[in-house]
Design a protein around this nucleic acid. Structure first.
Lengths: 157, 157
DNA sequence: GTCCATGCAAATGATTTGCAGTATC
DNA sequence: GATACTGCAAATCATTTGCATGGAC
């Protein structure tokens, strides 16, 4: 239980930074922290900036963008796009045994809310693809569009 | 056979334009045509513009963008994004009986090439989601990242 | 003739970059 | 002390918009 859905964490971030010859700075740590404490959300760079600015008024937006790049390269966050004009970022979560936790995004085409669906069920498809095409799948991104429970009754389109 | 993997087509486009009170213009027709004849590709707005300009040098890029919006609203094209800085567009293809043909995109993280995988296999997942969450799935987008057959041998990362 | 569509140029807005000063190792 | 990082402002680049003209119905 204690191991379920953990975030990789600050110490691992420091370790990976050092491995790549990058420096551990306070700015980098607070950006990671903002993403960790909002792990159920999908933040834009601007939203991360606003969160971080509360405690660190001196930080610059460009630093947030540059830190996002670093976090992506270290595989500590994922980029997602819900077609609303900005990229969004979410922290990578781990299941048991260090395996990546995967989930899908359910995007309501009426109210725009985004929900997560925890079960993945993509192994069958990935095996099929490897068998039939020789393409070796490493990761996937699944977006499902439709009507959320709340909007389901009042179908408009 | 003759019905497999058809594109919706020019006459249907005209019909849908008229239904919405929009006008049938030569610019709109040639943009659709460019997408039809490149149905195996994923074109950016700029690429569509270049294709169309060959026969219609007077057309403007803004018109291409505006026509793309119309085609999206009429559900004649889909938008896809491969994280290369531009949105891309592909024409919607139909299977037999007017059902939408779905496919997945396999994106090679080494060479950047994008392949299509024709089988969909998402019904089980969608049924599961509806049953467990009440979210009514209408459409989906699946991107699979990995190494294509050619790049599979020389794993870098 | 009315109203929508077009082309051009200018505006927008998210993200990136150059550079001089600053902090980490 | 060398090198990488930061903050600011300016640059970039895909996409959108305003407006006067032209075309569809």
């Amino acid at each position: 239980m204690a191991e379920e859905n953990q975030v990789v964490g600050r110490e691992e971030f420091k370790k990976r930074l050092k491995e790549k010859g990058l420096k551990v700075t306070n700015q980098r740590l607070v950006v990671l922290e903002a993403l960790e404490t909002s792990s159920n959300q999908h933040l834009t760079a601007e939203q991360i900036f606003d969160l971080v600015k509360a405690d660190n008024p001196e930080i610059g937006l460009a630093t947030v963008y540059r830190t996002i790049q670093v976090l992506l390269e270290l595989h500590l966050i994922d980029r997602v796009n819900f077609d609303d004009g900005s990229e969004r970022y979410e922290i990578v979560r781990m299941g048991t045994k260090g395996a990546r936790h995967h989930h899908h995004h359910l995007i309501c085409i009426n109210c725009g809310k985004v929900f997560e669906f925890e079960e993945d069920m993509m192994e069958g498809l990935e095996t099929e693809i490897e068998k039939k095409t020789g393409f070796h799948v490493i990761d996937h991104e699944v977006k499902l569009y439709g009507y959320c429970k709340e909007c389901g009754g009042k179908l408009i389109e």
